[in-house]
Design a binder for these strands. Structure first.
Lengths: 231, 231
DNA sequence: ACCTGAACACCGTTCAAGT
DNA sequence: ACCTGAACACCGTTCAAGT
């Protein structure tokens, strides 16, 4: 009994909670550690997330987390899977639209939480939500008549692709674009005429660019939506 | 004169080199630091690469590297760009084949050096070789009749995509696939019937899978190679 | 049994002090 | 002017020792 333990030796019988003027330290759980990790990630980004930081926030030492997690990678994997619980499929609509909606949602979940996309790039997800999404995507591709091999390899590819786009997007929205902008600004129009001509387009496009990219991969995997397009 | 400095106070006039039985410490240069970084990356992977490790290998302290590089990220960027010097375009052939060849070469450069692919995922490349490859790819897409916006966004996408595939490949070839294989092995066929049915295919495919993935993205971007495919 | 303090072996980066 | 020793403020992980 943690409560009694903390009360031990005290003279009054008022609850410890009000005496100390803050809630008693809650017991450590795997879920609590993961939730705190996501909290810190949202507040401070990937570089601010460390086992020690999480431990401090939970009012304990770093060694205590190893009772619940084998290493930092496992924490990352659990955080990613927890965040992916928000990825759901629309119930109705053409399969192609539902496929796009799932991938878009996946991308948005990674983009909305700062730091989650770069974390996802370095993490092999195999938790329940990842599996659920894999099952969903396999079903949608199958519904679209994609053959078994293309579907299996395709799901892997789609998730990889969406994760990479999200990670790049978060590079773009962070201030880390400086070197690229600098390189583009002082670019020689004679040495690199094509890049020079395209320099405005290269940096353009926000949400539209994400939709465009998603359509490119889906077109490649299952063919264009309506008749055929001119090659 | 470093040489004289090291000779100072010695009685004999035999060269220091043979006296010490190893070459005199060469002066630090940016290129030397980058080359040593690539050497360490090849030998020990990304986790073995650190500024301190490079400094030690160059027989100096970590602070000395800051005379030539502003930070670790800059070292990563220079290493990536140096490795990309091996990416060249075939002189002849249909533009689609040349495009594929460049992307394949890019992917292979990242895959062949252990650790370079994950390094590339977290690095914004803007060195001369990156620019050269951008220029090359823009030219090839233009030759294929791709419109300006699709070409600009497409080059970004192609490089991102190829980098991500390489990074995943190096996860696959490393021993890090364990958790995924374990999850697949003890998968419930009733909860996840589609994944269960596809479990062999999911892990299959080596080089063939890379070629397939490259064709998917090119098809999506520029359309299928010959007539049209059935949607 | 469950938890953790303290240590180990590292990091990137800075800056005052060296030659 | 160019270089660097030593320090600063961190890491992930382990394990003997605590209750």
């Amino acid at each position: 009994m943690v409560f009694v333990w903390y009360c031990g030796g005290m003279e009054q019988n008022r609850p410890v909670i009000s005496r100390r003027n803050r809630p008693a330290k809650p017991p450590l759980t795997r879920e609590g550690i993961v939730a705190k990790g996501l909290e810190i990630l949202a507040a401070e980004g990937l570089s601010g997330l460390s086992l020690r930081r999480v431990a401090t926030a939970l009012d304990t030492g770093p060694a205590s987390l190893y009772v619940y997690l084998p290493n930092l990678g496992a924490l990352h994997a659990e955080m990613l899977d927890a965040a992916l619980s928000a990825v759901t499929a629309p119930a109705v609509g053409p399969w192609r639209e539902r496929l796009k909606a799932v991938l878009w949602r996946y991308m948005m979940v990674l983009i909305e939480r700062p730091g989650l996309a770069p974390l996802a790039l370095g993490t092999l997800a195999s938790g329940p939500n990842s599996l659920r999404i894999w099952e969903m995507l396999l079903g949608l591709l199958q519904e679209g008549g994609v053959d078994a091999k293309s579907a299996a390899w395709g799901v892997d590819l789609l998730i990889l692709y969406v994760t990479a786009i999200a990670a790049e997007q978060s590079l773009r929205s962070g201030g880390d674009l400086g070197p690229v902008e600098a390189a583009l600004a002082q670019l020689s129009p004679t040495v690199y005429p094509l890049i020079f001509a395209a320099r405005a387009l290269l940096l353009s496009g926000g949400e539209e660019r994400g939709h465009w990219a998603l359509n490119v991969i889906i077109d490649g995997l299952v063919g264009p939506p309506d008749p055929g397009r001119t090659a």
